[in-house]
Design a binder for these strands. Structure first.
Length: 565
RNA sequence: UGUCUCAUGGUGUAAUGGUAGCACAACAGUUUUUGGUUCUGUUUGUCGAGGUUCGAAUCCUCGUGAGACAACCA
């Protein structure tokens, strides 16, 4: 058995990163050592795109007996905050991964600074006094070469002196930067004398306070940190591909041995009907267009968690979509199928009515209540059961009754037989309407011989509907979520503000009823509301108030049939 | 008119010179005390043109299309 599993495992084709790692292992690189890192910047909440990177970084370490460290890339105090450090840690662990060590790029500020001094002394870095605009202008464009700064060739001693003044806080923010002296005509823009250090005195750093007045840029911090830590495989997303030559170049300038961390890039995750940019998410949160980072419509890890997704469903999803160098867009239905697959096997079935209308069983004795048994999960052969009270007055779904029904309508319609789930077969006899013609009550007669479990209950009946007992039903707030945007790829439409594309119906709140078995549920408990969808308990549920989120609806063949007309 | 990268059904992903397969989606049927699930089947694909080869999705050449790069962001 175990053998079969591992055999199957090895049969599964490797992605290109795994192939590279295995190749390196085979060649004996780094003495067979594997070390990765997950390097978030603490400036926002993690989203499902990060989950893909997390599964890669931690997954490679796990699979090849290596280690993965968590390293915060905290080189820009203007944007970063401890709030994010904590949430990032929580989300990684919730996903089911554990880092070996927690590091911070800020741990290396002194070493990186010393390196900068070395670059100056080696004549490979200079202090530029031009404005950001001037520097940008001289950079050229991807198709035209740049021009050299007038400060490019100042003497080493002068550079040393100015850089010291910069780092002592004697120079105002923005007045000077330290630049690498490489090649202003390089076809790779990143080689056109990239900025290594800038002055930031106006924002204290969330860990080092005001100790530092100068901070290294990403390109002069990331690879260095990898090198210091002994990272063997520095895995990141495709947009860093152009940085790789510079990543290598910087390390080559100071490395004293043969060891080199190896950067490789894979495609980032895009999903239809959502945005995956931290900037846009921040905007949605700050402008109140969603209820917060953990709004169940957000693609954040905490949003998905609140929506009802489980760590395993997210990991399975990531596993299914794979890693390549092709930048595509994943259909959100693939994400949804991963949670449906899991919950179909694990979620307890319950009755909940989200758009209630009263059903009166006219021949059922008034004042009588009986307990009926229903299985928790028919997909699980070891499933237990629970009881549901039944009496003369029930709630059913408004859409489960139609006065004039098309022939393929198998639900409650006058003269038609329908089964009440786990209860009786009933025959619809009519309804009552208000002055405006709205149906306000539905009537039916039950057949006492058809109680579930009795031989007569095996009669073939086309339709089965769910119900709750009026007297004992628990009121519940039910939040129905739909896609946040109504266009497939909001990020693609460059000339429209993404906020115009928000789906106005992405959240509908309704008041419904659930069966009394759900009296003591806790936040994040999840269920299948029979015939409707998978729901979980929102943390807003407290003090006896029930609040459910719809994680994902069940497939609805009837709705599809109706659409066909 | 630069550099780098990519291109397999509607979407994503396999096939590592040897039968183009899988998942999701869609469609049809089956089963069903959930119009869910299950099971069965169907539709749809190697960007184009040359070349190498007994044999090309795979290797080569030339096109075409797409993405990334011009922050004192990461």
């Amino acid at each position: 058995m175990v053998e079969n599993v591992s055999e199957e495992e090895s049969k599964k084709s490797l992605n290109f990163i795994e192939s590279m790692v295995e190749e390196d292992l085979k060649e004996g690189k780094n003495g067979g050592r594997i070390q990765t890192r997950f390097p978030p910047e603490p400036n926002g909440y993690l989203h499902i795109g990060h989950a893909k990177a997390i599964c890669m970084d931690f997954g490679i370490a796990q699979k090849y007996g290596g280690i993965c460290n968590l390293r915060f890339d905290d080189t820009n105090p203007v944007k970063e905050d401890v709030e994010y450090v904590d949430s990032i840690k929580e989300d990684i662990q919730w996903l089911g991964f554990q880092w070996k060590n927690v590091y911070y790029a800020s741990d290396y500020f002194q070493r990186i600074y010393d390196l900068a001094i070395k670059f100056i002394k080696d004549g490979k870095a200079y202090v530029d006094e031009q404005s950001a605009e001037e520097i940008a202008k001289q950079k050229g464009t991807p198709t035209t070469p740049g021009t050299e700064s007038p400060f490019r060739n100042r003497p080493i001693e002068e550079n040393l002196l100015l850089f010291e003044k910069m780092s002592k806080g004697e120079i105002e923010d923005g007045k000077m930067v330290l630049r690498a002296k490489i090649d202003m005509t390089s076809p790779n823009m990143h080689f056109r004398d990239p900025i290594m250090y800038r002055i930031i005195t106006t924002h204290p750093h969330h860990r080092t306070g005001t100790n530092w007045k100068v901070y290294p840029m990403y390109d002069f911090a990331h690879g260095q940190s990898d090198y210091f830590e002994g990272v063997t495989h520095s895995l990141c997303t495709l947009e860093f591909e152009v940085h790789r030559p510079l990543y290598d170049w910087f390390i080559d300038q100071f490395a004293t041995d043969d060891y080199r961390p190896r950067q490789r890039e894979f495609n980032r995750l895009n999903i239809t009907y959502t945005v995956m940019s931290k900037r846009k998410m921040l905007q949605l949160v700050q402008e109140g267009l969603v209820r917060g980072w953990d709004d169940p419509r957000m693609p954040t890890i905490c949003g998905l968690r609140r929506r009802g997704y489980t760590p395993s469903s997210i990991r399975n999803f990531i596993n299914k979509i794979g890693y390549t160098k092709y930048d595509g867009v994943i259909d959100v239905s693939l994400l949804e199928s991963s949670i449906k697959e899991e919950f179909n096997a694990t979620a307890n079935r319950v009755c909940a009515v989200i758009d209630p209308i009263k059903l009166i069983i006219t021949n059922y004795p008034e004042g009588q209540t009986e307990m009926l048994t229903t299985i928790n999960n028919p997909e699980n052969e070891n499933s237990e059961s629970h009881d549901m009270p039944f009496s003369r007055e029930l709630y059913i779904e408004r859409e489960d009754f139609m006065e004039d029904a098309p022939k393929k309508y198998f639900r409650m319609t006058p003269g038609n037989e329908v089964r009440l789930k786990s209860a009786y077969i009933v025959n619809c006899t009519g309804c009552k309407k208000d002055a405006d013609g709205n149906v306000i009550e539905v009537y039916a007669e039950y057949d006492s011989q058809t109680k579930s479990g009795l031989p007569e209950s095996n009669r073939k009946v086309k339709g089965t509907i769910h119900w709750v007992n009026v007297a004992t039903a628990l009121p519940a707030e039910i939040r129905l979520y739909d896609r946040l945007f109504n266009v497939e790829n909001p990020g693609d439409e460059k000339d429209r503000d993404f906020r115009e594309m928000l789906n106005p119906d992405s959240l509908k709140v309704v008041n419904g009823f659930v069966e009394p078995w759900l009296k003591d549920v806790k936040p994040f408990d999840h269920f299948q509301f029979q015939r409707i969808g998978y729901f979980n308990v929102d943390p807003d549920a407290k003090d006896g108030k029930l609040v459910f989120n719809r994680t994902v609806p069940l497939k609805d063949s009837w709705a599809k049939e109706l659409k066909k007309g």
